[in-house]
Write a protein that binds this DNA or RNA. Structure first.
Lengths: 122, 122
DNA sequence: AATTCATATTCCCATTGCGGAATATGGATT
DNA sequence: AATCCATATTCCGCAATGGGAATATGAATT
């Protein structure tokens, strides 16, 4: 994987927040919407950007698309994702996201189920 | 230092090569020109980009501008620079740069002297 | 003061990225 | 088959970026 391509994926705040959250486990789009509190189109487009570049995988579960980090990422990607998680620990904004996520989904999800089964009021 | 700003600096191949080389010690612009083999304007502009964002420092030595990494970089920057050096070890292009540099300047330079004292045929 | 050398800046152009409004898709439910 | 829900895509405008040609700057040397 091209190092520059990785950094291109990392140089947007919304994408950083997405990747940070994915460090905990797979998530569906509605979780991102609830945690990041950004418009649907914005989140969907950044997920598409990451997906097109191989930074995330996704799998359909009925109505929901469950996104996750690649199972065995190449070395450079793994190193940079670890670095991101490390840096995020000192940043209140990332920690706020994580707190919201834990409130929303106390247990990390699995790739086969994001925990969304019923309609969500939004 | 803003994490996103760091990644913005890292998402260009020329800038990555510059930062990688600076990991060994301060360098003047003509060294970058010789090692990277890119046009002067290109190198100068990328150095200006990095300087404007606090990723590198520079100091004038007579005709030469000596660039270096910040003495005590903030944690996020240090982490990412370390990650870059790590990733660069597997990349032939980065290693080729480093080999050229060692041939050109066998000893790492100091901030007060880049080793350029006479005119260089180019 | 005129020239030379190393480096920086300006101007132009083409490409890319981001955001939002509107619309489309695809699966599930009625 | 019609509707609903979650998500994706298209279209638009705007700002930022990268590259090169030409020119400017600033220090040293003649």
């Amino acid at each position: 994987m091209e190092l520059v391509k990785i950094y291109e994926c990392l140089c947007d705040r919304t994408r950083l927040r997405i990747l940070h959250l994915l460090g905990r486990g797979p998530l569906c789009v509605c979780h991102f919407q609830d945690v990041l509190r950004e418009p649907q189109v914005k989140i969907s487009k950044h997920l598409g950007y990451l997906r097109a570049r191989g930074m995330v995988r996704c799998e359909r579960q009925a109505n929901w698309m469950v996104y996750s980090l690649p199972a065995r990422p190449p070395r450079e990607l793994a190193a940079n994702l670890a670095c991101l998680q490390d840096c995020a620990q000192e940043d209140p904004a990332f920690q706020r996201d994580l707190a919201r996520l834990k409130k929303l989904a106390p247990k990390p999800t699995t790739p086969s189920s994001c925990g969304c089964t019923t309609a969500v009021k939004r």
